[in-house]
């Protein structure tokens, strides 16, 4: 049961939510590949594919409701994230940005969908992999555009600085481009999802536990539940925002690698 749901009264007394709640045993079988987050990733891939296949199958000039929904998400990514930031070469990157945005958004929103209720990105390996994709894409684009020597030279050497200062500045530039950028990209997403899920667990499990107490505590528990519901809506906002920021930063990095001077 613990691999799918979490109740406050496991064992004896109140077990406060902790990082243990994110390490779920496998749903079936006895290996590391059938845990809930992995099943959710597969579910999200199926959901996203089915939704966009259905919404684009019968494309008409006067769109149906489904087609309109699909097209507004697509045009949001294409215009606001692709065209406005990357510039005239943006069409090459729209498929990647669009896949990234819908995938991260669906997996984030799983955190508040009833019965699923686990944001996949709160396991840190998933954001790591996504950040590695972005890392490879934006460096590859920059190297293809400018050649490896010129690209590295532009990253490492800031113009208009006396020579000895490069000893101080070049390691910082290298660390920023090759370590801190992918790391902050993935950790921002992970930390937001982790903290959000923990927050919801605290309020909802706390409310459940208070409800099992004496009469006075029973009276308090509705407030904890109400706060939990309010925070669920807040979480929805955070989840959309984080998917947006992840894609936005990817687009910005690609734009920076494409630009001739930065």
């Amino acid at each position: 049961m613990r691999s799918l749901f979490r109740l406050s009264g496991e064992g004896e007394g109140f077990v406060p939510p902790s990082s243990n709640d994110f390490e779920l045993p496998p749903v079936f079988g006895d290996n590391a590949f059938t845990t809930k987050p992995i099943l959710l990733v597969f579910l999200s891939v199926i959901l996203v594919s089915v939704f966009f296949l259905l919404s684009s199958r019968k494309a008409a000039v006067v769109p149906s409701k489904l087609q309109f929904a699909g097209e507004s998400i697509y045009s949001f990514v294409r215009n606001d994230l692709g065209r406005d930031i990357i510039g005239h070469e943006f069409m090459r990157f729209v498929p990647y940005l669009f896949t990234l945005f819908t995938f991260v958004l669906t997996n984030n929103i799983f955190g508040i969908v009833p019965f699923l209720q686990f944001p996949t990105m709160s396991r840190v390996s998933f954001p790591y992999v996504l950040a590695v994709f972005t890392f490879v894409v934006f460096h590859y684009v920059g190297i293809r555009k400018q050649g490896i020597v010129k690209y590295l030279k532009e990253i490492m050497f800031m113009p208009g600085v006396p020579k000895p200062v490069y000893i101080l500045l070049t390691p910082i530039e290298l660390a920023t481009f090759f370590l801190v950028r992918p790391l902050t990209l993935s950790l921002r997403l992970f930390a937001n999802m982790f903290a959000g899920h923990l927050l919801l667990l605290v309020f909802i499990l706390g409310g459940e536990h208070l409800f099992q107490g004496v009469l006075g505590l029973k009276l308090i528990s509705p407030f904890a539940f109400a706060f939990g519901i309010g925070l669920t809506f807040f979480e929805f906002m955070v989840q959309c925002l984080q998917a947006y920021i992840f894609t936005l930063l990817t687009a910005l990095y690609i734009a920076g690698a494409l630009a001739d001077e930065h």
Binding site: P171, I172, A175, T176, V180, R181, T184
Partner: peptide
Amino acid sequence: LWSIFGYLLSGMLFW
């Protein structure tokens, strides 16, 4: 703003 944050963080981490 994100670049500034990245520079400060990596400067501090490296040195």
